[in-house]
């Protein structure tokens, strides 16, 4: 018989290295003669999309299109150390570093613009669509390209460098008291599964995944992180296990170590909750790791909801489910 069940799970996740570890990212931004710009960051893009997100942040801060940004990343001969691509930290930590570096380069340009546009402070100036303009009198404007080339000809260099440190406090080793991570991300996922009581096989029908990411710098990329995280959670819950025998891996292949295929991952509805973290770039926190955390427990809770057995040892294989069902039957008999 096929039985359906629904399970819920919520999590929190402390982003960043944490525990007082130096969690620093550095970046350099240079605006060129024609108003285009180069960003240097040590952040490695492992596929999650930091090159795109950091370019978006630089483009936003400089008020120029993303096509005018060249982002060079993760080459130790020419990019500054941005820390590791881990701990859900690159959008937050390197995002802040790039934003600060871009703001410094921009300030040099605006200082020069103040003279050209005859305003007495840069507070009234902004950059939008490739123009520096007076916010309260937008018809007074000059193109970034013209301004940058003029400023550079006068000997100005439009270079900003910045480092950003995520703050955290070491915990006391005897009591664990302290403030080890900042900021925390939060999430709730609800899964619906169908359990075949004859075969023990679990099919995940659908998952809704709501994540507090602070702010999505790139909406589709955030959704992709959530859906990808859910897929890894599905695998962890149901099939994945490195089998060891005397310390030797028994299944070092994709034939025996089963990661989910397109037929195993359900339709995932990502829900982006934006809470605008004040310390994050444009309000962003991160999503990489939290994406996968609620999936496994939500599926296990859904299995219980469907057939009344609680799997307490991963993965929830058909054999384990059948065994648990049998034990339950014997207990009830």
């Amino acid at each position: 018989m096929k039985k359906r069940g629904i399970g819920m799970a919520s999590i929190f996740y402390g982003t960043g290295y944490g525990n007082g570890f130096p969690d620093v990212s550095s970046a350099v931004v240079e605006i060129h003669d024609d108003g285009s710009a180069t960003v240097l960051t040590g952040a490695a893009d492992c596929g999650q999309g930091s090159n795109t997100v950091l370019a978006q942040i630089a483009a936003e801060e400089l008020g120029i299109p993303i096509e005018k940004i060249t982002l060079i990343s993760a080459d130790t001969d020419c990019t500054p150390d941005a820390g590791t691509t881990a701990a859900t930290r690159q959008t937050y930590t390197s995002g802040n570093a790039v934003k600060l570096a871009a703001a410094k380069a921009k300030k040099i340009l605006l200082d020069f613009a103040a003279g050209v546009l005859a305003v007495n402070t840069i507070d009234g100036l902004d950059i939008k669509d490739g123009y520096v303009y007076v916010k309260t009198f937008p018809q007074k404007r000059i193109s970034v390209a013209e301004l940058a080339s003029h400023a550079r000809f006068k000997g100005n260099r439009l270079i900003g460098e910045a480092s950003f440190t995520t703050h955290s406090t070491m915990v006391d080793p005897e009591t664990g008291q302290g403030a080890p991570y900042y900021p925390y991300a939060f999430a709730t996922q609800i899964a619906e599964v169908e359990v075949d009581t004859e075969t023990g096989k679990v099919e995940v029908i659908r998952i809704v995944a709501a994540h507090d990411v602070g702010r999505a710098i790139n909406k589709i990329a955030v959704e992709g992180q959530i859906q990808g995280g859910v897929a890894q959670g599905v695998g962890w819950a149901l099939t994945e296990e490195v089998e060891l025998k005397n310390g030797q891996i028994q299944n070092p292949s994709f034939t025996e170590y089963l990661i989910p295929t397109a037929l195993d991952v359900p339709e995932v509805t990502p829900v982006i909750v934006e809470t605008y973290e004040e310390t994050g770039p444009y309000g962003a926190k991160g999503v990489g790791e939290p994406a996968m955390l609620p999936t496994m427990p939500a599926i296990l809770n859904a299995i219980y909801n469907a057939v009344g057995v609680r799997i307490t040892e991963l993965p929830a294989t058909p054999e384990k489910i059948l065994k648990a069902l049998k034990e339950k039957e014997q207990k009830n008999a």
Partner: peptide, 24 residues
């Protein structure tokens, strides 16, 4: 939190619970 940390930051947990639950 259990480590005595005050969550003086954006905490959207309850919003995620509401959003997920409503969609179900």
């Amino acid at each position: 939190t259990a480590t005595g940390q005050i969550l003086d930051m954006s905490v959207g947990l309850k919003e995620t619970m509401l959003e997920a639950a409503r969609r179900f």
